[in-house]
Nucleic acid binder design. Structure first.
Length: 291
DNA sequence: CTGTCCCTGATT
DNA sequence: AATCAGGGACAG
């Protein structure tokens, strides 16, 4: 489940593969709502373009092109962006691994879930966007055009402050976890890291946001940053669907303290971790440590 | 603000 | 065969 750390790891690994290279051709699967920009338009506008840089805001990736257009990429739930030249095939799932070439250096052969392939004029590795469930998005933004979904985003989680969270929390009576997941407040936090941050801050996910104090907001944001930075360093979390661009899975899943640990003892006090549903998302917390 | 839906694969 | 997973847009 790609959240900010997974998207940032993807950005770092993909940037050297994109920046400075010129797109020679574009291959896509058939049109679907995955393509906010239709495949023929993508072909028309991408071919011949050189990528200037690859940026990230929250869970969005933005490739800036030499004509000022920007290619917006969102991984959704199951999106994977990676090089066709796979360096660690053993870490792909068995099924995905079957799409690797047999002879020579491992290369990923586009399967039916590979919706976008960017090939480059230098003949080097291609960039592939694979997404089994198609919750991901591809959108080409014309130069100077702003996008509503980007405009709505709050401050990136790595730059967020407790003060900003507190300001939003005072006006809302939703559960604090719902607020953490609201990309318009803080961009980049998803279900896993929301649970982890609230655990580290000792705040129950279901508590009304307006009953969370300023110092608790400080703790929550600090914890969210800490846990996400740590996750970036270890290569991103990997529950089941996330694959780094080099084909490896992430290391952070070993570090989860509450997420998907229902019924297991709290690592701090031994109380059994509880699972509830908040904002239609599975939510995990320690009933003793978190108040 | 909450509920529904998009989609497919794994699990029950 | 039914249920679950959930990011985010949208309807109500």
């Amino acid at each position: 489940m790609p959240e900010l750390p997974e998207v940032e790891v993807t950005r770092r690994r993909l940037a050297p593969l994109l920046v400075g290279r010129t797109i020679a051709s574009v291959e896509t699967t058939k049109d679907s709502y995955f393509f906010l920009t239709k495949p023929p338009t993508l072909q028309l506008r991408l071919v011949g373009r050189t990528v200037r840089q690859l940026n990230r805001h929250g869970k969005y990736l933005l490739a800036e092109l030499d004509d000022g257009d920007r290619l917006l990429l969102h991984l959704g739930m199951t999106g994977q962006l990676f090089s066709s030249a796979v360096t660690s095939p053993r870490l792909f799932s068995a099924k995905t691994r079957s799409s690797l070439t047999r002879e020579g250096p491992p290369e990923f052969k586009a399967d039916k879930h590979t919706h976008l392939c960017l090939h480059f004029t230098d003949g080097g590795p291609s960039v592939l966007f694979r997404d089994v469930r198609k919750f991901g998005k591809v959108l080409l933004l014309k130069s100077g055009i702003e996008d509503r979904r980007l405009g709505k985003l709050g401050v990136d989680a790595l730059r967020a402050t407790g003060r900003a969270l507190f300001a939003a929390a005072r006006a809302r009576k939703v559960p604090i976890k719902t607020l953490l997941l609201d990309q318009a407040v803080i961009a980049g936090i998803g279900n896993i890291y929301a649970d982890e941050a609230l655990f580290l801050a000792s705040v129950r996910p279901g508590r009304s946001a307006r009953r969370v104090t300023a110092s608790e907001c400080d703790r929550i944001v600090a914890a969210a940053k800490r846990v996400m930075k740590r996750s970036i360093v270890t290569g991103g979390s990997s529950i089941s669907d996330y694959v780094s661009p080099d084909g490896s899975d992430g290391g952070y899943q070993k570090e989860r303290r509450v997420y998907a640990r229902k019924g297991l003892p709290c690592l701090v006090c031994g109380t059994l971790i509880r699972r509830v549903v908040i904002a239609t998302r599975s939510t995990h917390y320690c009933p003793a440590c978190q108040v």
